[in-house]
């Protein structure tokens, strides 16, 4: 006998206790959202000049969005499968090098005085980087991550090893010298409003970051796949007990996360206009600070952490350059003393 497709339509059994249920109070936690605003406002009088402050803030937002692109995949990978992937930086570097390779033959489009051709070249390079790093991520998960599930120490060692191997492979394929990564013509320079100069590429980076964040939040909150990812970050075992194959979901998230790291690498290399094999490893310190500050596994926290880290890095680099290197570590310490699980901790089983 199998269970009937529809239940009996009988009324609730007589004599059932009547329970007065009160609506639980949902606490809305906006305090972390106010942090970047507070930081920016606090920096205004210290910077002293409104136009400099705007330039610094836009530069910080651009930097924050690029860090977010890289960090969002990593935080989901950790949240979903408890995997510490120190090799994530490899995808940043390889993404940037793939873009460099694609942009070479498209140099006519890159140097053309046409925004359409410039963006087409950049779009193709970014797409190739995302596909390339996504595929590489799939192979990385199969070959390197899969044998060490549930073993954090081995994960750290083997993924660090993966990063080193990837960097050496870059030297073999593309050479060990520093490469120039020129911005397309239409993205060079700045829009000037009075004393305020807003660099075009930074505005593009902000736009790309915001679009990716919006799409990610839409997918996570409005689709069943998104619900599964959020549920899996909380309790992967229960997701499996509901009949879903979490491993497939994880591989998908790993591929998307690697692709986003590749996109972040392209943007980061264009932002710096130079490229070395160590570009990924260098950025990873900031990325790890961001995902710890945001709360491991939290995409919203990761976004906020990226903005906070970038704002603080830019303001301190301008105001107290000697403190700039330590500023983000100090930020992380302060946040963790306030909220030991990060700004928006994910409820774990």
């Amino acid at each position: 006998m199998s269970a009937p497709a529809s239940p009996s339509a009988s009324p609730p059994p007589a004599g059932r206790a009547v329970i007065v249920e009160t609506l639980p109070r949902v606490k809305t936690d906006f305090l972390p959202v106010l942090l970047p605003l507070g930081l920016a406002l606090a920096a205004l009088p210290l910077v002293g000049n409104a136009s400099t402050w705007v330039t610094l803030t836009v530069a910080a937002l651009a930097m924050g969005m690029m860090i977010y692109l890289v960090a969002s995949g990593l935080t989901l990978v950790f949240g979903l499968m408890d995997v510490l992937n120190f090799g994530h930086g490899a995808f940043i570097a390889i993404g940037a090098y793939i873009a460099l390779t694609v942009l070479g033959p498209l140099s006519g489009w890159v140097q053309a005085d046409s925004l359409g051709l410039n963006l087409s070249a950049l779009g193709l390079a970014a797409l190739a980087a995302m596909i390339g790093t996504g595929l590489l991520g799939w192979a990385f998960e199969r070959l390197i991550i899969m044998p060490v599930y549930g073993q954090h120490l081995k994960q750290i060692l083997i993924t660090m090893g993966g990063l080193i191997v990837a960097e050496q492979m870059i030297h073999v394929i593309w050479g060990g010298d520093q490469k120039a990564m020129a911005l397309p013509t239409a993205l060079r320079g700045a829009f000037v409003f009075g004393d305020i100069a807003l660099e075009k590429f930074r505005l593009l980076a902000v736009a790309v970051g915001l679009v990716v964040f919006a799409v990610m939040m839409l997918v996570l909150n409005r689709s069943k796949i998104g619900l599964l990812i959020r549920a899996g970050v909380e309790n992967a075992e229960m997701v499996e007990a509901l009949g879903y194959r979490i491993r497939r979901l994880f591989v998908g998230v790993f591929i998307v996360g690697s692709g986003l790291a590749g996109l972040g690498g392209v943007m980061w290399a264009l932002y710096r206009e130079t490229l070395t094999a160590a570009i990924g490893g260098d950025l990873m310190v900031l990325v790890f600070i961001v995902i710890i500050v945001g709360g491991l596994g939290s995409v919203g926290g990761c976004f906020l952490g990226s903005v906070l880290v970038a704002l603080l890095a830019n303001y301190t680099a301008f105001l107290v350059p000697k403190v700039a290197l330590a500023s983000n570590i100090l930020l992380m310490v302060a946040i963790l003393m306030w909220r030991p699980q990060g700004l928006y901790p994910v409820a774990k089983r």
């Binding site: 269970a3 909380e234 229960m238 409820a347």
Partner: peptide, 27 residues
């Protein structure tokens, strides 16, 4: 694997309840 067992027609309510706290009742 657990998903195959669930798909065979077994549902499980663990001692911890394991509701997804960040998701709504509807979700």
């Amino acid at each position: 694997p657990t998903p195959d067992i669930a798909r065979a027609g077994i549902a499980y309510v663990p001692e911890t309840m394991a509701v997804f706290a960040d998701l709504t009742v509807r979700e």
